[in-house]
Design a protein around this nucleic acid. Structure first.
Ligand SMILES: [Mn+2]
Ligand SMILES: [Mn+2]
Ligand SMILES: [Mn+2]
Ligand SMILES: [Mn+2]
Lengths: 233, 233
DNA sequence: ACTAAGACTTTGACGCATCAAAACATATAA
DNA sequence: TTATATGTTTTGATGCGTCAAAGTCTTAGT
């Protein structure tokens, strides 16, 4: 055991590749498995469309995506595996930052975005153990287990509820700290229970009443789309 | 507060720059402030000398080092500040991995090497608080405080002790897991007390006796140089 | 069927970090 | 002093990830 191992260590994807794959996955999710166009991908990655095209060719050569020129891109089984690994890392890290290091709900995403590309498999398994295998991250998003299985939850976007529905908040979109701060102010956090008091397509608003505090809150339908809820019975 | 901040965020050095600065610092330490040559730097960075030269010019343009062509390189005050920041990050991360996540003494260095370039200032301050401001890392190396001050300790390399000296282990060089495993087997860890029973320059060995267990251990003088000890009274 | 608007791809360029190999400088030994 | 070894710099090249701008394709509207 005194000699340095000469075994060809499987090269880890660059953080750029990891990020593209993660973003393609979420775009694909968002659109029910629809093919992801270059403009859409470029926007989500904050790069120019030409950059997206050339990167996608690279991902295709690495067998992480199926690329149909002038159509778009879909993850292969391999790509999906990597995407789920990344999502697991991201969400475990977010949970760890909140639970252990006392980060605020609104701060975890930014740091997780960088750490997810730097942590080792060992680190991830250790924090998973430390946290006792959490099911969801601070925003209510499910954490895939180490085999890649993601819990399927029955939930609907808040803007697709009907007046009179009583719902439990399941998940709040996590990318925008401003949004998260506002939601927290009105107790729109995972686990809280609300009554949908009004849906107004004309005004583009919806209103909810926090059951516990009786507080009322009105928000735009687009904002409502970023909140997932589970109807109560 | 609804508009995105347009303040020019001070660009963080690339992880490559961070790593060069950290390595220049430790080479400079090792040689009592001697100027660091390109071959020495190239070897420590595992790059070719030409690469070191071009990088050093870049560091010099960034005012992180003073570069004298054909002589070598020394950190500027700015460079030293960055180096100490990196060392603080590295050692706090190592301590955190061991204390909180249950990493073994021998495993922490590798992960810290990657994480130190990815963590935020917020992360570092949080783990510092969580650990209650530790003074030393798992290998006995001092952790600079957030103002950059490093505790000065009086210690000497084990190979420069004399027969009959009684010493406390202060620090074990942390880069080589093999070495760390062996040292741990013989209880050569920070805090343990030993008697130097023999120094044999001819054979190139030295022997120590673990006071508590009476166990004897013989090692090479080069290995001894990687162990710092404090003579007892 | 024609056209205009978008989406998409290609091309040429750049910055960063690296290497290999050639050219050069310096120090020491003969 | 001259030769040789060693360290150093330069040059030309490469891969990655990116942009700007020019050109191409597709789609939907008239
Ligand atoms: Mn997130
Ligand atoms: Mn999240
Ligand atoms: Mn270390
Ligand atoms: Mn250490």
């Amino acid at each position: 055991m005194a000699t340095k191992s000469r075994i060809k260590t499987e090269a880890r994807p660059t953080s750029t590749v990891e990020q593209y794959i993660k973003v393609i996955f979420s775009q694909q999710e968002r659109a029910e498995g629809e093919i992801v166009g270059m403009k859409q991908l470029a926007d989500a990655m904050a790069v120019t469309p030409g950059t997206a095209t050339s990167m996608v060719k690279h991902l295709s050569a690495r067998a992480l995506v199926d690329y149909t020129p002038r159509k778009g891109v879909l993850l292969t089984a391999t790509g999906r595996k990597l995407a789920v690994t990344m999502i697991r890392r991201h969400r475990l890290i977010e949970t760890f930052l909140e639970q252990v290091l006392g980060y605020d709900w609104t701060e975890v995403h930014e740091d997780a975005e960088a750490l997810e590309h730097a942590v080792s498999e060992r680190f991830i398994e250790r924090i998973d153990t430390y946290l006792e295998y959490p099911q969801t991250d601070p925003h209510g998003d499910p954490i895939p287990d180490s085999s890649g299985a993601i819990e399927r939850r029955l939930s609907v976007p808040l803007d697709r509820c009907s007046e009179g529905d009583q719902v439990t908040v399941v998940r709040i979109g996590d990318e925008d700290p401003e949004f998260l701060i506002l939601m927290k102010e009105h107790m729109l956090t995972p686990g809280e229970v609300f009554l949908v008091t009004e849906i107004n397509p004309t005004a583009g608003t919806l209103s909810v009443c926090h059951i516990e505090s009786k507080a009322l809150f009105t928000l735009g339908l687009a904002a409502g789309a970023r909140i997932l809820v589970a109807p109560i019975h």
